[in-house]
Design a protein around this nucleic acid. Sequence first.
DNA 1: ACAATAATCCAAAGCGCTTTGGATAAATGA
DNA 2: TCATTTATCCAAAGCGCTTTGGATTATTGT
Lengths: 342, 342
Amino acid sequence: MKRGSYVAIIKLIDIAKNLGLSLTTVSRALNDHKEVSSETKELVRKTAEEMGYVPNKFAQTLALKKSHLISLLYDDYQESISYQSFTFEIIAGVRNYFGSTPYDIIIVPGNLKSSRREPLKNICYSRGIEGLFVVGIRTNDLYLEELKEDFIPAVIVDYPLLTKKVSYIQSDNLKGCRLAVDYLASKGHKKIAFINGHNLAAVSPLRLKGYQIALRKNGLLCDESIIKTGNYTEKSGYDTAKQLFAERADFSAIFAASDLMAVGAIKAIRERGLKVPEDIAVVGFDDVFFAEYSHPSLTTIRQHKFDLGYMGAKELHKIIENPEGPRKKKKLDVELVIRESA
Amino acid sequence: MKRGSYVAIIKLIDIAKNLGLSLTTVSRALNDHKEVSSETKELVRKTAEEMGYVPNKFAQTLALKKSHLISLLYDDYQESISYQSFTFEIIAGVRNYFGSTPYDIIIVPGNLKSSRREPLKNICYSRGIEGLFVVGIRTNDLYLEELKEDFIPAVIVDYPLLTKKVSYIQSDNLKGCRLAVDYLASKGHKKIAFINGHNLAAVSPLRLKGYQIALRKNGLLCDESIIKTGNYTEKSGYDTAKQLFAERADFSAIFAASDLMAVGAIKAIRERGLKVPEDIAVVGFDDVFFAEYSHPSLTTIRQHKFDLGYMGAKELHKIIENPEGPRKKKKLDVELVIRESA
DNA sequence: ACAATAATCCAAAGCGCTTTGGATAAATGA
DNA sequence: TCATTTATCCAAAGCGCTTTGGATTATTGT
């Protein structure tokens, strides 16, 4: 009889029999359908409650052709470990938003990284997934091609894809860079080095651009020799900063495209016998939590990670409910958090 | 016709019609049932592939009474923010384990924290959830009472609950404390202060006990006046360390029950004009990632977080597949990671 | 050659729900 | 008063799948 571990305890038919009503009426009563009297509704609701009835979502999904399921596509491993904190908070935002909707969140099996994997389409169709929330995708990820096929509503964090069913959301990177450079310039820095991240992150070119624009605005010239590229890890921040020193580059401040690289850079500066911020000022990007606890605490550009998740989820919800509506990219505000490092 | 956003594209019946076979045979062919010839199987598989067929999990679940769904119960917010990193890595382990099984992971809607929330039973029964992976639960959490009812297979991280269907897993806290104290003692420290976390975390009393046992083993006396309780946050580490100083307590080392509190303590020590580790040595617990990047980098007890998730998931799988088998608590090894702070 | 076995296949029922298309009884209008 | 609306209810079909219990054909043993 019982096949698997999962069994529904009380079914609609049980309530119906119990009350001498039809299945139909019970179903309608619970769904507040107009064709059943309010007395019956109340009666049914009460006994359902008493009998401990819970609807079987699978049966509902099958009958309604509506799963109320959205899926999270994210990666467990990234070289940049502050990605953990970033991702965690974004997911918190997503959970929080969908928590007040009938939607549940399922985690897409398998990593973004794993090479042999099921096509997204199969995963989604098989599980009746209605929307995809994507975070941490790389510019060279194969899933991107599938997303471009536009077969399912999706919201992507930090990758600019805008189609009929796909929106994206990101922080205002240009403004972030402007804030950082403006602040450093206001402190009298003329030579501001920039440690960018690799181009597998779609935000990297944006941050470079923002940095350059901001320099220009402040009447500073853009010296290619003090622009370096790391990979968002602490080590790469350390290495590139050392490289700057080795090349006898001329700078009094470093703006790093991530907090982790900023921390690495600080380490290199210290090893050089220089002081932060007295000799060299450092500004990071992200405001991951340890920025506050590192020493010296990090002046940085704060991204509102929770809001990225929350607002992104809201947008995804909108796309699902109204697939014909216009898609839009959303830009979230950032702010400068001044601490000790600059 | 079409009701919701989700529609199955190709169904078994389509393949059947296409091939002039019966629905039954097609289903059996795809499930590798013995009662269908291998030629037919091959034929069916090929055309299914060509037609882009994917099975509808909802229909399968309904028919098989088996959902292949486990659920993640965790909290988005905790005062201790290193909880993020801890939780993230555990979840990575869980994903990784279940990634090679037919099980999908669904996130339980709502936080552990939120006060008004659906009973766990309803959530699980309604969604056909077969098992629960619980992380970050507090000793006063109401969900604990529900879990004790033992109505669903579960594995809990860091809370000692052992019933017919529930196992738990945690790091070897006693050993961790022993390693820390042994190491400090070996460095000649006689007075080792201890900053513990609150008792809402089930590991706190364990760590205190481990600390006391280890002191005794090393022939050191246990001085109540240098044992303090924080709440796993950086600030509480800072505050309690300051308090120690204010009370003119006599100690040359601090062992903190979390890295975050250790970082806070270091800050307090610094402010006092003392040096770490020269004047006061500090050892943390957890080895969350920023332990490596803080300054001075933290000597700490490493928990294998990924493995907690992976092994816990494995255990959960086992409970689901074999509900009658014996439950057991699992203890994962820890290790001392020596860096600069001690 | 004929009964018994094995190998394939299929129609129909069932999983738990929603909804369609009537049916019945009560309330309304003329 | 009788036809008509309105308010309630229900049997049955359908969502896409798996499985039971036969049916049909091919294969084997004697």
